[in-house]
Design a protein around this nucleic acid. Structure first.
Lengths: 139, 139
DNA sequence: GTAATCGTATCGGTAGCGGTTACATATACG
DNA sequence: CGTATATGTAACCGCTACCGATACGATTAC
């Protein structure tokens, strides 16, 4: 796995949808409009919104006046959900397997893995306290 | 930036040094021995131990019977120090700059950045509660 | 002096990402 | 019905970073 801008793009897109009041198909915002607000490419936005759609966070419709809209109030979308939706995590690496036959060499990787899992969990818990609505507070 | 195995390699190496009782030049462990315990390449290990050395966590000496040793008790080395030493972080991405002229498009990136910083901080705090000694507990 | 070891440079192969173009599908509107 | 608009996805390119390996000078023990 590699670094990615998916999470910030996703968070920005959701906040933008909330700001535009896009809560139904009639108020859908196009990927071109979302992309212009980053700014980035519309396809990059659609790659992310597609994942957010599969996670049940947004709806989308093709065709004229189509685009994406939020399926839940902004206060009900926490950023840990967003992170999971775009396959993100703390990306601290994967513990090496450890040498065979060495009891210590086999135990250490488990402990290192546990530490990485703990870090991932800490991220999820922290982001769970931030909602999309919070991103718009100072506007 | 990209994903990296530096953090798990560093944590494993430090735990292995602690287990081997390497606390002085006389008990130095070679990069070849550390690499064999992962397993990985000695050069990969030296790239990491070099960073740990610059961070003041370990000492190293060239020459016959050379290698690396811990400069502090294992209980005093927390994993957030290790993560910082190898240039790691939560790697959630960088907030896009936002569109010019749009007051909201300019505020959202700040909020997204703040969320990413909060997540990084959560990782550091969680890893700050885990020491190298903890990695050896069940051995 | 010899052997061992570190630190670093360099190269090759791999992988993922962002940006772009392209295209089939779907939808609104006249 | 036909046209314009927009999504979703695939394909391709250039870029970056990583890991592994080889190599080499510098350092150190014996």
């Amino acid at each position: 796995m590699s670094d990615s801008q998916k999470f910030p793009v996703a968070a920005h897109a959701l906040a933008y949808l909330a700001h535009k009041g896009a809560f139904a198909p009639e108020q859908a915002v196009s990927s071109a409009a979302l992309a212009a607000s980053m700014p980035t490419n519309p396809v990059v936005v659609r790659r992310v919104t597609s994942m957010l759609g599969k996670a049940g966070l947004i709806g989308a419709r093709a065709g004229a006046n189509g685009g994406a809209w939020l399926l839940k109030p902004a206060e009900d979308i926490t950023l840990d959900n967003v992170l999971r939706a775009v396959n993100g995590c703390a990306h601290l690496g994967v513990a090496p397997p450890g040498a065979k036959g060495c009891p210590v060499g086999e135990k250490i990787p488990e402990a290192v893995s546990a530490a990485i899992v703990a870090a991932d969990k800490a991220v999820a818990e922290r982001l769970g306290k931030i909602t999309v609505a919070d991103l718009l507070k100072d506007c």
